[in-house]
Amino acid sequence: MPIIKVENLVKRFGSITAANNISFNVEEGTIFGFLGPNSAGKTTTISILCTLLGPTSGNALVNGYDCTKESSSVRKSIGIVFQDTTLDKDLTAEENLLFHAYLYNVEKAERRKRVDDVLKLVDLFNRKDDLVKKFSGGMKRRLEVARGLIHRPKVLFLDEPTLGLDPQSRLNLWEFITALPEKYGVTIFMTTHYMDEAEVCDNIAIIDNGNIIAMNSPEELKKVIGGDVIYLKTRDNAKAKDEIKSMLDIDASTRDGELFISAVRGDTCIPELIRTLGDSVLSVRLQRPTLNDVFLKLTGKAIREEGGADTDTIKAEVRAYRRRHE
């Protein structure tokens, strides 16, 4: 029996339909990802599953309990890391965790031990007496994940857990999160709008404008692209382009000083290209299709990386600006 079962879920806010008749199941012990751009309806769905919002219509069951009618049993079964931090910054790390342990009625004999255990798990044991306001974004996230595990939930919800973190912290957090199902038997339900992060999921639902537009494992989803992408750099791209067209009958296009070729089998296409172009080839890159390409194909638009302009985007913009003006 699936641990999360959602049937024909609808949630409207006035004229906005945040969840439009969505259905899906999540199997116990797996990592399930909800992937979609901002405003797709990810947080709304999580809020319904964790009993903070009531659905307009439809059913949601978590751990066999109805999210509307048996909210208390659902609440006992879940842990959650919200999109925006919900720690008390004026309490210490340990106090935040103890608060949680009391709130979830963890037995007296167990409380301290569990708090210490999760603190060690997320590598914050030696910072337990520090006020949370002194913590970095990554530390706060880790602390929140730790807190969500104290009462041994069956399902851990993570709403954009890496939002606003630097790449290194993101990597660390994922390493830690992906180990949880095996360690604790917990099922993970996560949302993200970073396509690359969804790769760690066993199954993914792609959601756009409140609709689930595709659902499968990452590998299966990428098969819809039907091929690979090859990037090629040569001494003379224009000349190479003509040669590829005349000898191999493949259309190449130019992007950022590289030739871009889409091919059904990239691995066999590369040797042909090199044979054709000889030593004018400077570099070759074979790219497997990404979930980003999947999203692009399904919706006709790239996922928007809105919000917190990260340094990479800024750098890219600066470079683009210079190219235009120099």
Binding site: C50, L52, S72, I80, T86, H100, L103
Partner: peptide, 14 residues
């Protein structure tokens, strides 16, 4: 406003 209320509201307490 600072989110802590959600930690309380999502807990299994009446």
């Amino acid at each position: 406003e600072f989110g802590f209320m959600k930690e309380i509201l999502v807990a299994p307490v009446s």
